[in-house]
Design a protein around this nucleic acid. Structure first.
Length: 463
RNA sequence: GGCGGCGUGGCCGAGUGGUUAGGCAGGGGCCUGCAAAGCCCCGUACUCCGGUUCGAAUCCGGACGCCGCCUCCA
């Protein structure tokens, strides 16, 4: 049984599935108006890991993540750069998927776009107006939050106390500061769609309700996003579903932020590092390992030295892959738990990792178990138990693969000169000509290789 | 103001009341021609003050500090 923290209840509880063996999950995706930042990288990794883990465990996963391609920020950028909104959205969506590919984040099964769901949103808004849970103002249509009795459930606060803290905005026609825009009336130079209640464009909170219900259906299993989406975004999604008399997500889970110097990373604070930038400078697997080594609900700090730390840890994993010539798992290629042979040490490892992962996705503990197993595998091999060491290493590989982390034995592509140097060095070592052997080693190092003396002679790999 | 979370060894980071989390860095050792890789050993931490308990990082109360949400935001 998989247990997961539930935001509504404020505690870890069983993830009960709508239909056994199948997980339906909706993850709030990006608004495509700028390069993805580290925070986006984190959340996509966190839920990619969850998805992979569910799959690994034999569940059939339906993973939906939206792309918001109409919004104020996109419009602002388009106007600033004298481009069309769709041009801006297309550019940054491409940047998004490029970054996801490099991160090793698997494509969602569905990636609905807000602009493809305008009709459904209009229908929903019209039904709200019919039923008097929404009202028209001079600038659009607003949802009346007081029409939902348990509004504030996700925020953990009743409507009254939320209202008390709400910032008061100038003079608008909203009945409550918490009421939110379902539809924004068309303005010059803005994209708009015809609607019975006036031409315009949808507000942000409506798209996810319509798309989630369309693709996953009522009572889908899991809805996730960052803590900042808990309120008001998710609360407002839920409120709309309630008002539409549709059962919505059974389970809500939220992940922690990426911090910069103790503060939340965000575009509005201008303290973000682009994910693209990080991926250009480091092994993308380092970020995945970093994310795995902290709990998804905790904040993480991402600095160059912390990334470097993860890269060094990665070296040890790759050394294992090299030592046992492990095949590359992870990415699009991974084993299912049921197809791997778990026995002895492997079985113990597997059971511990399962216990950790199924306990609210405790990836840090799972990774700790894997590192302990790594030491054990090396020790077994050192002591001459090659076969069992190799079996354990393969299991470690399979489990990291299930978390989306590929262990790489590294490339052995060399050139003639390098090959010649290796042969010369082996000859020198054989004749105990240490001076020449060391000189050649220095030369190989200068050419960018790390040199190790293996049982069968000089072994090189890229530094 | 309301609600929520966090304060762990040099750094990162888990932690179910009593037994070594794990990683990185550092020190010592084994192995090695020397290295590298690997393995072994070492630091014995838990913001502070009370309380409960035979025993608390872990439970309760309080203090201090930090962070998040209540506005666009992953």
């Amino acid at each position: 049984m998989i247990r997961l923290y539930d935001t509504v209840r404020g505690e870890v509880r069983d993830l009960t599935l709508r239909s056994p063996g199948r997980v339906s999950m909706y993850v709030c995706g990006p608004t495509v108006y700028d390069l993805p930042h580290l925070g986006h990288g984190r959340f996509t990794l966190v839920w990619d890991v969850a998805r992979r883990w569910f799959t690994f465990q034999g569940l059939s996963v339906h993973y939906v993540s939206n792309v918001t391609d109409v919004d104020d920020n996109i419009i602002a950028r388009a106007n600033l750069e004298s481009r069309t909104e769709s041009d801006v959205a297309a550019q940054y969506e491409k940047e998004w998927w490029d970054a996801m590919t490099r991160l090793g984040v698997a494509r969602p099964d569905d990636t609905p776009h807000a602009t493809h769901y305008i009709e459904g949103m209009i229908d929903l808004i019209a039904s709200f107006l019919d039923r008097d849970v929404a009202y028209v103002t001079s600038d659009g249509v607003y949802f009346d939050v007081s029409s939902v009795p348990d509004y504030g459930l996700l925020a953990g606060q009743p409507l009254e106390s939320l209202r008390a803290g709400a910032r008061v905005e100038g003079s608008d026609e909203k009945r409550s500061p918490l009421d939110f825009a379902l539809w924004k009336n068309a303005k010059p130079d803005e994209p708009s769609w015809p609607a019975p209640f006036g031409d315009g464009r949808p507000g942000w909170h409506t798209e996810c309700v319509v798309m989630a219900l369309d693709l996953l259906g009522e009572g889908f299993d899991l809805h996730t996003g960052g803590f900042d989406l808990k309120f008001p975004h998710h609360e407002n999604e839920r409120a709309q579903a309630e008002a539409a008399h549709k059962s919505f997500a059974r389970h809500w889970a939220h992940h922690g932020f990426v911090m910069v110097g103790g503060e939340k990373m965000s575009k509005s604070l201008h303290n973000f590092t682009s994910l693209t930038d990080l991926l250009d400078k480091t092994d993308p697997r380092a970020y995945r390992l970093l994310v795995l080594r902290s709990h998804y609900r905790s904040p993480i700090e991402v600095t160059p030295s912390i990334i470097a730390d993860a890269e060094r840890a990665l070296d040890r994993l790759d050394t294992l892959a090299r030592r046992f010539q492990l095949s590359v798992l992870g990415g699009d290629n991974f084993e299912l738990a049921s197809s791997h042979a778990w026995e002895d040490e492997s079985l113990e490892l597997y059971e511990r990792v399962v216990a950790s992962m199924n306990d609210d996705l405790n990836t840090p503990f799972a990774v700790a178990e894997l590192f302990e197993a790594l030491t054990a595998a090396n020790l077994m091999a050192d002591e001459g138990h090659g076969a069992s060491a190799r079996r354990l290493a393969q299991s470690i590989n399979a489990l990291f693969g299930a978390l989306g982390l590929s262990l790489l034995a590294g490339s052995h592509v060399t050139d003639e000169v390098t090959e010649k140097l290796v042969i010369e060095r082996d000859a020198a070592r054989l004749s105990k000509n240490w001076a020449d052997a060391d000189r050649i080693r220095d030369e190989l190092v200068q050419r960018g290789w790390i040199v190790e003396d293996g049982a069968s002679g000089t072994v090189i790999r890229r530094s």
